[in-house]
Design a binder for these strands. Structure first.
Length: 577
RNA sequence: CGGGGCGUAGCGCAGCCUGGUAGCGCGUCAGCUUUGGGAGCUGAAAGUCGCCGGUUCAAAUCCGGCCGCCCCGACCA
């Protein structure tokens, strides 16, 4: 392919709309263009790379025995009502009406659709296990789309759904997908970390996320070096090794004046006590009923954990009026002593003595609080976010906090959907059983961008050979030189005949422009054709991201060398897998 | 949805406070010169100044409303 026949609108300047490196580079390298918030067109280069990722996903899913299907993106509302998820996912679903006034949604995910299909088509244990997957566009009304393809309203996803006769069999299906995912991401040149994760609105028993470590990642995670424990911050449990008994722990509790001191910071400073000594008391509405949540003053509440501990569907911080009504004091002075609400305390507060809490009176706090002596806690749970330096819940190690981009998520779903939608089969005894399900997602378009986020330098993208839009770029240093053109065209043609994807930069531009664009676009193997080396009967070979200077290769060996370089790049990729 | 910011040529921006001819850099097109890491000169095309309304002799500029985008937060398979 000639550059002059392609559309590769590279940008010299950084577009204002892009914040993170991968987003900037996708725009600058002419891979994508924005249509609206969270909506992107793939230009030829971006689409080529995307198709490479898809091809790897297909190969590995097929290899793992999954069967490719294609389901509609548009769904009748009724199917979502059958599982109650029309309400659960209501906010993220795009809803539309057809001219008959029928209610339709644009699918944010496809559990209902595939389970409905399986309920009709699979009836016997002899037909199990089966795993169906598709690569398709998903629609989610994200509150805030950002970072280009990272969080878009419309994005490409590979989703797979496994159906098994029982939990043991389902576990095998899960393992097969887990391993397929490892291979997929390795083949994309990504270093990923697998973490325990929250199942969220998917429901189900447990799940693992595949994270691409990156500073710009939207997800926080912690990991423990010694034992390998790793979990999404939404789920991670950190063990505190901090003290729970503070000075004057044995004294009776007493009221102290704390005029206008409402925040942990203010009270901590005013009373000259570390924030950890304070007990933060937050009033929530759990399914409309007020409850109090207690956590150490230096900790943040993890509302997902609270909701799970309480078993409530809807959890929100109470408004000021509710707080005043529940505590009898203005906001900022709530405390558990004498508070007539269900009290849910974070585990780390166990044994807290000599602590400080709000007094449920304006401008007052209570000191020397002994949680066991002075308060009747309803339940202790893990209710806070883990953080850097916390103890590992599995071993003696210490947790390290990192950031990551979630590119894959595998769930053990169980029988939730199969029961609700009647995906039942007859076992050998003729008894009806619900299929045990798993579901497995890969954000395909996001994965593409994650590769760039992880593999770039100041000059541009460094594609792994496996998903590069082209494997080789043949660069005419002076496109007006006849011999340059002849050699470039001949090498390009030979390689293309051998099935190599070549981009030939035949633009009549200055060399600098073409070198810069080559680095930006990031094609792995660059073949420079210029008068200087042609005079020596050679061309110049350079691997993107490796060594600064190009290697001169005799003309008659050029194609063989290029093929060798391609092979080597694939080998390196496999070796790191 | 709350807070902040921005909307002027394809991209990046100035002009707005203090109303009066719409500008700069890059890119694009043409010509000449140049040619190994984002060239030089000359010329040219290209803008309903986000939209609607108001004030005014006159609005990119002042006022009101709306829309869009970006950032932070809340939220999120």
């Amino acid at each position: 392919m000639r550059w002059t026949k392609q559309l590769i609108p590279t940008l010299r300047e950084v577009p204002l709309e892009a914040e993170i490196a991968s987003h900037q580079l996708m725009l600058r390298a002419g891979m994508i263009r924005r249509l609206g918030a969270g909506l992107y067109t793939f230009l030829p280069l971006g689409f080529r790379a995307l198709k490479k990722v898809e091809a790897i996903v297909r190969q590995e899913m097929d290899r793992a025995g999954a069967l490719e299907v294609l389901m509609p993106a548009l769904h009748p509302r009724e199917i979502w009502d059958r599982t109650g998820r029309y309400d659960v996912l209501s906010e993220v679903m795009f809803k539309i009406e057809d001219r008959q006034g029928r209610h339709l949604v644009l699918g944010p995910t496809h559990e209902e659709i595939i389970t409905d299909l399986v309920s009709r088509e699979i009836n016997s244990y002899r037909q199990l296990p089966r795993n169906f997957y598709q690569i398709q566009t998903k629609f989610r009304d994200e509150i805030r789309p950002r970072f280009g393809l990272m969080r878009a309203k419309e994005f490409i996803m590979k989703d797979a759904y496994s159906f098994d006769v029982d939990w043991d069999a389902a576990e095998k299906s899960y393992q097969a997908m887990y391993e397929a995912y490892q291979r997929i991401f390795a083949r994309c040149g990504l270093r990923t970390r697998v973490v325990e994760a929250d199942t969220g609105a998917m429901g189900g028993k447990s799940s693992h996320e595949f994270m691409v470590l990156a500073e710009s990642g939207e997800d926080g995670l912690v990991e423990c070096g010694p034992c390998g424990y790793a979990a999404n911050l939404e789920r991670a449990e950190g063990v505190t090794r901090g003290e729970t008994v503070f000075e004057d722990a044995d004294r009776e509790n007493e009221l102290v004046d704390t005029p206008n001191m409402r925040t942990i910071e203010e009270v901590s400073g005013f009373l000259k006590s570390p924030p950890a000594r304070l007990i933060k008391t937050l009033i929530y509405r759990a399914d409309e009923k007020p409850v109090a949540v207690l956590v150490p003053g230096d900790r943040d509440v993890n509302e997902l954990k609270v909701a799970r501990a309480l078993g409530c569907r809807k959890l929100e911080l109470a408004d000021d009026a509710t707080i005043e009504e529940a505590t009898g004091a203005p906001v900022g002075f709530a405390g558990p002593v004498g508070l007539d609400l269900p009290l849910y305390a974070d585990k780390k507060l166990r044994g807290y003595r000599g602590a400080i809490t709000g007094a449920n009176q304006a401008d007052r706090h209570i000191v020397h609080v002994d949680l066991e002596r002075d308060v009747r806690i309803s339940e202790f749970h893990d209710l806070t976010y883990a953080r850097n330096g916390d103890g590992c819940p599995r071993c003696d190690g210490t947790l390290v906090e990192k950031r990551g981009i979630e590119v894959g998520h595998v769930f053990k779903l169980g029988t939730k959907y199969s029961e609700q939608l009647g995906a039942l089969y007859l076992d050998p005894e003729g008894k009806q059983q619900p299929a045990v399900m798993g579901c497995y997602g890969i954000g395909v378009s996001r994965t593409l961008q994650a590769v760039i986020e992880q593999r770039h330098d100041k000059d541009g993208i460094i594609w792994p050979i496996s998903i590069a839009p082209y494997a080789v770029e043949v660069l005419m240093i002076n496109a007006q030189d006849a011999e340059t053109r002849r050699v470039a065209e001949q090498i390009t043609e030979t390689l293309e005949k051998q099935g190599v994807e070549v981009l030939m930069d035949d633009r009549d531009e200055r060399p600098g422009v073409k070198f810069k664009d080559a680095d930006l676009v990031g094609v792995p193997i660059r073949v420079g054709i210029g008068e200087r080396s042609l005079a020596k009967g050679a061309v110049e070979l350079k691997i993107r991201g490796q060594s600064d200077k190009a290697k001169e290769v005799p003309l008659d060996q050029a194609v063989a060398e290029i093929q060798g370089a391609i092979r080597q790049l694939y080998e390196e990729l496999n070796a790191s897998a």
